[in-house]
Simulated scan of single mutants.
Amino acid sequence: MEAIAFGLIGGGWRAEFFLRIAKALPERFAVKAALVRDRGKADKLQEQWGVKTYTSFGEFAAACRNGCSFAVVSVKRLANPEFIERLAEAGIPALVETPPADGVEGLHRLWERVGPAAKVQIAEQYAFQPMHAARIRLARSGRLGEVSQAQVSAAHDYHGISLIRRLLGIGFENAVIRAQTFTSPIVKSPDRSGPPLSEELTESQQIIATLDFGNKLGVLDFTGDQYFSWIRGKRILVRGERGEIVNDEVSWLPSFDRPLYDRLRRIDTGHGGNLEGFHLQGIMGCGEWLYENPHAPARLSDDEIAVAETLARMGDYVRGCPSFYSLAEGCQDHYLALEMQRAAADGVPIVTETQPWAEASPRGNG
């Protein structure tokens, strides 16, 4: 199969994920053009990655129309709407990093201008991370019965809410949101730039929120330190009437009087005498492969595997396959996150309202 060719808007930390993935999987993906407005940064990106770079959107769009299936938008949220709209006007499908716009008014304005007609998908990768994908598949398998609760302490705001919606099978239903914040001391953690250079006591900002969808409950509990910290772990709880998932532990009742227990197990190659290279093969649990890595044998992190999956699915989408993470879903995730932050700031419950993108998306969460 011919490699999926795409253009890339942006040259920052997150944009480099797409460049690394294309380098690791040249038979699957190819970055044919990049748009970086700053000439110095554009030249540096071209030299480092060997990708033709442009500082003019017009030249970039022309290059995309001449050999790219779509363009990835990987810029700051305030700049997202401009590029989404310009790509839509140019007839170029867009895969957009989260969130698609800043603030509820920004989401409304973006939806009004491009709506469901534009070929836009959101690069919300968390549901495609291997362990999360395995949990989602298990939650939807019926083994746990009807799932009624998901507690997520693994990602912030719209990312965490995306996982909650997928684990619960929630689309665009409204919720009553209650939230509070808590500040506590913590020894400074690593960050995007690497490990700390000295000991420093800093503040950890935590938000705890409940999203009551009526017959289903989502709980988000997250501190920003969890992404990189050595001492702040991630936690997932999924509860159904016949069983539950607690991180990688599964318990369920195939019959009322016979409980079964299992574990979600990562299977990697390259251990001991295995000479297949070092990569994730998949996730096993409950007697089956709950997840098989479609991007093996590339040596990628879980997050890179997930981002690669958004690229692969975008390639399918532009060839006529169904939406995998629509602009409407991306707007809904961010809307709920904004209302969660408002509930925490105001100290009162917030009742969400049906938004324009929900009215245009009757099928809800895929």
Rank of each mutant, 00 (worst) to 15 (best):
M1A: 13
G7F: 01
R14W: 14
A15W: 01
V31M: 07
V31D: 01
A34K: 07
V36G: 07
G40V: 00
D43C: 08
L45I: 02
Y54G: 02
F57H: 04
A63I: 04
C64A: 03
N66V: 10
A71T: 04
A71S: 08
S74P: 06
K76L: 14
E82K: 15
A90D: 01
A90R: 01
L95G: 03
E105C: 12
E105W: 08
L107Q: 03
H108C: 15
R113W: 04
V114Q: 00
A118M: 00
Q121S: 04
Q125A: 15
Y126I: 13
Q129I: 12
Q129C: 13
P130W: 07
M131V: 13
A133T: 03
R135P: 06
L138Q: 08
L138A: 06
G142W: 05
D157E: 11
D157W: 14
Y158V: 14
Y158N: 13
H159E: 05
S162K: 08
L163M: 00
I164M: 03
R165Y: 11
I170W: 02
F172P: 00
E173K: 06
N174W: 04
Q180C: 08
Q180W: 13
T183V: 13
S184R: 11
S184Q: 10
S184W: 09
P185C: 05
V187S: 06
D191P: 05
P196I: 02
E199V: 10
L201A: 11
Q205V: 14
Q206G: 13
Q206Y: 15
A209S: 04
F213H: 03
N215Y: 10
G218E: 00
F222L: 09
G224K: 06
Q226H: 03
Q226I: 08
Q226V: 09
W230A: 12
R235T: 12
L237F: 11
V238R: 01
N247I: 05
N247Y: 05
L253N: 01
P254R: 00
R258S: 14
L264S: 09
R265V: 11
T269K: 13
G270E: 09
G277R: 08
G277Q: 00
F278R: 11
F278D: 13
L280D: 04
G282L: 12
G287R: 05
P294C: 09
P294K: 06
P294S: 08
E304F: 10
A308E: 00
A308D: 06
A312C: 11
G315S: 04
Y317N: 09
R319E: 11
G320E: 02
F324I: 07
Y325R: 11
E329I: 15
G330M: 08
C331N: 07
L336A: 01
Q341R: 15
Q341W: 13
D346C: 13
V351M: 15
V351E: 14
T352W: 00
T354N: 07
R363H: 10
